[in-house]
């Protein structure tokens, strides 16, 4: 990997992170994302954080051990993203099950639409990399798979949320 390539990668990740931060700030400003939870939700989210933390710990240890023994066919950034996405899914599942995923003022439709856009965007980029053939190089899954992984994660979270809504039958307030 040349120095130029590494610099490009570094600034690419930095630009992506900045764009992400700006996007979140804009969504917060537009009140699509809101972080006001009631006491039951805070408690449920605390439990979810606990499960997510242990999931991350186990996933990272498993990755480290497996990579040391077998040398896994994916680069470090991709593996870290996989662990991160697994953690996020665990967090989301626990929160959704305990009705604590969305805050008091968030509108499910708006949030799911936002998730859909993010998923579509990332899957689109992932598909481009896949067609270009740069996602897998020399039999190793490269960091270019991260977009696809994030896109799939968003779809999984959306699916779980939709499943929960339909299975709970939206027990109507009396």
């Amino acid at each position: 990997m040349s120095m130029e390539y590494k610099m490009g990668l570094f600034f690419g990740v930095l630009a992506g992170a900045l764009a992400g931060l700006l996007f979140v700030a804009l969504m917060k400003h537009k009140k699509v994302i809101d972080c006001h939870f009631d006491e039951r939700q805070e408690r449920a989210r605390g439990q979810a954080f606990k499960y997510a933390f242990f999931t991350l710990a186990v996933a990272v240890i498993c990755y480290g051990a497996l990579d040391t023994i077998f040398t896994l066919p994916c680069d470090t950034l991709t593996a870290v993203f996989l662990c991160f996405c697994l953690t996020m899914v665990v967090f989301a599942v626990v929160c959704i099950r305990k009705e604590a995923y969305l805050s008091l003022y968030e509108k499910p439709g708006q949030v799911m639409m936002l998730f859909g856009v993010i998923a579509a965007f990332n899957i689109g980029i992932g598909a481009i990399y896949l067609m270009e053939g740069t996602m897998v190089e020399n039999g190793v899954l490269t960091f270019r798979a991260c977009n696809l992984i994030v896109g799939v994660m968003m779809l999984v979270i959306m699916g779980i949320y939709a499943l929960h809504i339909s299975s709970s039958g939206e027990e109507e307030a009396e």
Binding site: R40, L104, E174
Partner: peptide, 26 residues
């Protein structure tokens, strides 16, 4: 309604529902 009470006290409807069902100790 649960929703109206929830809005009055500043919590989610699900929280009022959980209290009524005995699933949550406020």
């Amino acid at each position: 309604s649960q929703q109206q009470l929830a809005e009055t006290v500043g919590v989610s409807r699900q929280t009022i529902n959980a209290i009524e069902k005995g699933d949550y100790n406020p």
